[in-house]
Amino acid sequence: MLKIHGIARSRAFRCIWAAEEAGLPYEVIPVGFGPGLKDAISAVNPNGKIPAMTDGDLVLFESLAINLHIAAKAGAPLMPAGDDASRVLQWTFWAATEVEPSAGMWAYNTYLKPADQRDPAVAKAGAEGVAARLAVLEGHLAKTGPWLLGANYTIADCNLAAVLYGAWSNGFDFGPFPKAKAWLDACVSRPAALAARKQREG
């Protein structure tokens, strides 16, 4: 059984969502934020962060890598083969390297930090960065839709939508990007997403 170390109100949410999409049995080992986090998680993540995952003898950290492993266990259509597998990697790495840094800048300075520690200039720069990436996504979906790889939902959709979830749930303006907004709404409304969201939002 998959064991996901973390809590749903963290990046472990992404892994819970992926496990739900894959239909694989999993257990959440609750490890939360706080001064004891590093000691609590270091056996499975030497970086001292959540999430981490164990699957038998396999130990993994990095939420999106965990999701790729989960999808590989499930196989197609969640993890396709051939060229589409490479496209899954492309969009997953794009989510991590292009979208998440800007989304984090916006999030920390919009709703995560205490109000007196937020920097509006950094929030604005983050929002502009997210918008630039959403413009790329908008153009891509205009050609391929409804999902990132076309007709089938894959772990690439789950990974990118999970990275954008914080923006989606905290009032980011997706109005200029109707195709991206419709795609994201569809992702977070899937039964697996709703099951994961129940753990995070409940």
Rank of each mutant, 00 (worst) to 15 (best):
A85P: 07
R87W: 07
V99Y: 02
G126D: 05
A103D: 05
A167G: 12
T110D: 05
Q90C: 06
D173Y: 09
P178F: 01
G82N: 02
Y108I: 01
A85G: 07
A76E: 10
D116N: 04
L141Y: 02
A180K: 02
E128T: 14
Y153I: 09
S102W: 08
A74K: 07
E62W: 01
I70E: 02
A142N: 12
A85D: 06
I66T: 02
A125L: 10
K124S: 13
H140G: 08
H140P: 03
I155S: 00
A186I: 04
N159D: 12
N67A: 07
D83G: 10
L68W: 00
P101R: 10
Y111M: 09
F93R: 04
Y111D: 06
T144W: 05
V188C: 09
A107F: 09
Q117L: 12
W183Q: 05
S102C: 09
K124H: 14
A135I: 08
D173K: 15
V130Q: 01
L184S: 03
A121F: 01
C187S: 05
M79N: 10
A151K: 15
C158Y: 07
A103K: 12
A182R: 03
S102P: 13
L64A: 15
D173T: 12
G82K: 06
A121L: 06
L134I: 10
F177K: 00
A125W: 03
T97H: 10
A115Q: 08
L148Y: 11
P176V: 08
A95P: 13
N170C: 06
F172M: 07
L134F: 06
P176Y: 10
A142R: 14
R190H: 11
E138M: 02
T144M: 07
S86V: 11
P146Y: 00
A135T: 15
T92W: 08
G150S: 08
W147F: 04
Y111N: 03
D84A: 15
D185Y: 12
K143C: 04
A96L: 10
H69D: 01
N170M: 07
T110R: 10
P191N: 09
N170P: 08
V122G: 01
L112R: 15
L89M: 09
A81D: 12
T92K: 06
G145M: 05
G175F: 01
D119E: 11
A192E: 06
A123F: 05
K124W: 06
V122Y: 05
P114D: 12
H69W: 13
I70C: 10
A85S: 13
P178N: 01
H69M: 03
P101I: 05
G75H: 01
P80F: 00
K181W: 00
F61H: 15
D83I: 11
H69Q: 02
V163A: 14
L194W: 06
L160W: 11
L194M: 14
G82S: 04
Q117W: 03
